[in-house]
C-alpha cells in the first residue's frame, strides 16, 4: 500500500515535471505486468465457476472416484490423475539421468566445437511440435518397441506385474518414452547452465587433490549444482504432466488404474483433448474440473520445485569434503 502510494506520488511528480514519455512507459509496463496476473486469475475463476455443477454433484469424492461412465453421467478423476503421475514419473526416470548425462558431457568433456553442435541440436529438439512426437511415437516407436524392446523385457521381467500382458503399441510404456524425449531438452539445457555456473575453483581444487575426473564431477561439481539440477528435473516433470497432443495419440486413452506399463491409460490432459468438443452438461463440467485440477497439479509441482530448491540450497554447499 505504502509503496503503491509512493509510486503514484512519483508518477505525479514526473507528470508535473512534464516527463510524459516516462509516465506512459511506466503505466504500460504496469499494465503488462498486471495482465499476467489477470490471466491466471481469469483462468482459475472461469474453470472454478464452470466446474460448479460437477463439484456440486460429486463433491470431494471426484478426486478418488474411478467412475467414468458418460451414458450414466458418472465421473471421477482418479484414473486421469494416476495416469498423469505414472506417465510423468516414467518419463522423468528416463529423461532425468540422460539429461544430466548430456549436461555433464557438454560441460566437462566435450570439445568446444562439439559442445556447440550438441547444444544446438538439444535446443532444436525443444522446437519440434508435440503432434510430430506423437505421430512418430505411434508410427515408428511403437512398432519398434514391439519388435525389439518388449520381447527381451518380457523374457526377463515378464513375471512382474509391471511388464505383464500383451503389448499392442499404444501404451503407458510408449507414452512415457515419447514424453521422456520431449522433456529431455528442458532437463539437459537447464542442467547444462547449472553445471556451467559451477566455479572452476571447485574442479581445480578437487583435481589438485589427485581426484579422477569422475570423482571430481561426482564429489565437487554435482553437489554444488544439486539445487539447480533438482529444479531442472522438476520443471521437466511439470512439462510432462501438462503435455497433451503426443500423449493423446499414444497412451491408448483408456481410463483405468493400470498396473502393467504395457496397458493403456489416460491423463488429465488427454481426456480433455479427447472429449471437450462433444461433451455437454455434467460431462463438460467434469472435464473443466479435471482442467482445474491439472492447473492445481502443475502449480503444486512448481511450488514443490521451489521449496525443494530452497531446502537443498540451505544445506552446506557441495565443495570439497573429506
Amino acid at each position: 500500500m505504502l509503496s503503491s502510494l509512493t509510486t503514484r506520488f512519483a508518477l505525479l511528480k514526473q507528470l508535473r515535471r512534464g516527463n510524459l514519455g516516462d509516465v506512459i512507459f511506466q503505466l504500460l509496463a504496469l499494465l503488462f505486468g498486471l495482465s499476467i496476473l489477470a490471466l491466471v486469475f481469469g483462468i482459475v475463476f472461469e474453470t472454478w465457476a464452470q466446474s460448479a455443477p460437477s463439484r456440486r454433484e460429486f463433491g470431494w469424492s471426484f478426486l478418488w472416484s474411478t467412475a467414468f461412465d458418460p451414458p450414466n453421467d458418472s465421473f471421477g478423476a482418479l484414473p486421469f490423475i494416476y495416469g498423469t503421475i505414472a506417465s510423468s514419473i516414467l518419463a522423468i526416470l528416463i529423461a532425468g539421468p540422460i539429461g544430466i548425462g548430456i549436461a555433464a558431457y557438454l560441460v566437462e568433456i566435450a570439445p568446444r566445437r562439439l559442445n556447440q553442435i550438441v547444444g544446438f541440436v538439444v535446443e532444436l529438439l525443444a522446437a519440434v511440435p508435440s503432434i510430430v512426437f506423437g505421430l512418430w511415437g505411434i508410427i515408428v516407436l511403437a512398432p519398434w518397441l514391439k519388435n525389439y524392446i518388449v520381447p527381451p523385457l518380457q523374457a526377463v521381467l515378464g513375471w512382474t506385474p509391471l511388464f505383464s500382458g500383451t503389448f499392442f503399441g499404444p501404451s503407458v510404456f510408449a507414452a512415457g518414452i515419447v514424453l521422456s524425449i520431449m522433456i529431455l531438452p528442458t532437463v539437459a539445457a537447464i542442467s547444462r547452465d547449472v553445471l556451467r555456473a559451477v566455479p572452476d575453483a571447485q574442479r581445480e581444487g578437487m583435481l589438485a587433490l589427485g581426484a579422477t575426473r569422475w570423482e571430481m564431477f561426482s564429489r565437487a561439481v554435482l553437489p554444488y549444482g544439486k539445487s539447480g539440477i533438482t529444479g531442472a528435473v522438476i520443471l521437466g516433470l511439470g512439462r510432462a504432466a501438462g503435455e497433451t497432443m503426443a500423449v493423446t495419440l499414444i497412451i491408448g486413452n483408456s481410463p483405468k488404474i493400470f498396473t502393467s506399463l504395457f496397458d493403456q491409460g489416460a491423463t488429465m490432459a488427454s481426456i480433455i483433448a479427447n472429449n471437450f468438443a462433444e461433451s455437454r452438461g455434467l460431462f463438460l463440467s467434469s472435464l473443466i474440473e479435471i482442467g482445474l485440477m491439472l492447473f492445481a497439479v502443475t502449480f503444486l509441482i512448481n511450488v514443490g520445485a521451489r521449496l525443494l530448491v530452497s531446502l537443498i540450497s540451505r544445506q552446506p554447499q557441495g565443495g570439497i569434503r573429506a
Partner: peptide
C-alpha cells in the same frame, strides 16, 4: 449407448 462410453476393453484412438 452414447457418443462416449465406459469402454470395457480396448485402445482408444481419436
Amino acid at each position: 449407448a452414447g457418443t462416449e462410453l465406459k469402454w470395457p476393453v480396448g485402445i482408444g484412438a481419436k
